[in-house]
């Protein structure tokens, strides 16, 4: 599993995202560059130029026509992938931390941060995946955290755009109606004193994985908000994703940047960790980064994954045949039955 090293950022990576087919990988970091890469060979297709600050989030619409980004310049932008130019921009009062297209590509979640007297929250916009279309300037709904709930950190759509699932700084998850924005339910998933650091849906968007500074990643069913699985590690986790094809989850993290000077990369725990999704066992690790892993994402076809580090590098790993051959006895028996 020889990795491909992508060097396009000067600052820590903040999010990686594959398009629907997985032929392209988008990357954003705490710098102004937004990169688009060919995922099979790591060649850079181009950059999206014009962001005024660090970027925290990126997503391509299902037809890979336009890209949305969220930035510390307090904008959410839409870009034309072909030309790399901004086609629309929405202004907010604070940093935009998350953007995500609905599964049908007609709506966009924009999560702005709570900061200095501004409540932040989630705005949902109608969008058209057409570079010549005029985009709507006003959101169709605004969602604020419930009374007493902690601020939103992440938000994703569930299957069919039915729900919006949000992660909070206090380790809880909430569920909102995807059509009306109405609050449905909330549940404590991670330990309260530790923030959730990532939220990603399963390939079919019926369950989600979250990672936390509480040194775990966990799976939650979106319908019942029931905790399904817990993956325990020995260090704080920054990101987690669910692979297709194999029943694995991939976790990334490592010692916090502020503590890194006290340790060598050897004991910084800067490895991607593979866990069996159903049995919760750790099955393998992949080394390579020399800082904490800030983001891990699984290729939609399950054949590879990418990780982005605090040190500014991205690594793409294509899996060897042995990865696909690995099964537990009980899985082999079940497959035969």
């Amino acid at each position: 599993m020889r990795p491909i090293l992508l060097q396009g950022h000067e600052r820590p990576l903040t999010q990686l995202k594959y398009n629907r087919e997985g032929d392209l990988l988008f990357s954003v970091a705490r710098d102004k560059t937004i990169c688009v890469w060919y995922s099979h060979n790591g060649e850079r297709l181009g950059t999206l130029e014009g962001s005024g600050g660090a970027n925290f989030s990126v997503d391509a619409d299902p037809t890979t026509t336009i890209v949305a980004t969220g930035s510390a310049d307090q904008t959410a932008r839409l870009w034309d992938i072909k030309t790399g130019k901004t086609i629309h921009s929405w202004n907010f009062k604070t940093t935009v931390k998350r953007v995500e297209f609905s599964p049908d590509g007609t709506k966009l979640i924009v999560l702005s941060e709570k900061m200095m007297g501004y409540p932040g929250g989630i705005s949902v916009f109608n969008v058209k995946a057409d570079v010549n279309a005029t985009q709507e300037t006003e959101p169709i709904m605004d969602i604020k955290p419930e009374e007493g709930a902690d601020k939103f950190s992440f938000a994703v759509w569930s299957y069919g755009g039915k729900y919006i699932i949000t992660a909070h700084a206090d380790g809880s998850l909430s569920k909102y109606d995807g059509a009306t924005g109405e609050f449905i339910a909330s549940t404590q998933i991670h330990e309260e004193k530790f923030p959730i650091t990532d939220l990603q849906p399963s390939p079919d968007k019926t369950y989600v994985i979250t990672s936390s500074k509480d040194k775990t990643a966990r799976l939650t069913d979106v319908d019942s908000l029931k905790l399904l699985k817990t993956y325990k590690t020995d260090t704080s986790m920054n990101s987690a994703c669910i692979t297709s094809k194999k029943d694995f989850v991939i976790l990334g993290g490592g010692q916090d940047a502020k503590d890194v000077t006290t340790t060598s990369s050897r004991d910084g725990k800067f490895e991607a960790r593979f866990y069996h999704k159903i049995f919760e066992d750790e099955v393998g690790r992949v080394k390579g980064h020399f800082g904490p892993l800030n983001c891990v994402v699984a290729h939609p076809n399950g054949g590879s994954y990418a990780s982005g580090g605090e040190e500014g590098y991205i690594r793409i790993h294509h899996f060897d045949p042995s990865y696909f051959d690995f099964t537990y006895d009980v899985e082999r028996f079940a497959a035969k039955e």
């Binding site: 087919e21 997985g22 099979h40 069919g160 019926t206 939609p300």
Partner: peptide, 23 residues
């Protein structure tokens, strides 16, 4: 879950097999 998604008409075609091989 698969049954429910099917009833809702949300079953997506399997993502295409990778056209490239491991490097």
């Amino acid at each position: 879950t698969d049954k429910k998604l099917e009833e809702l008409g949300l079953v997506e075609p399997e993502p295409a097999e990778s056209e490239y091989t491991t490097i």
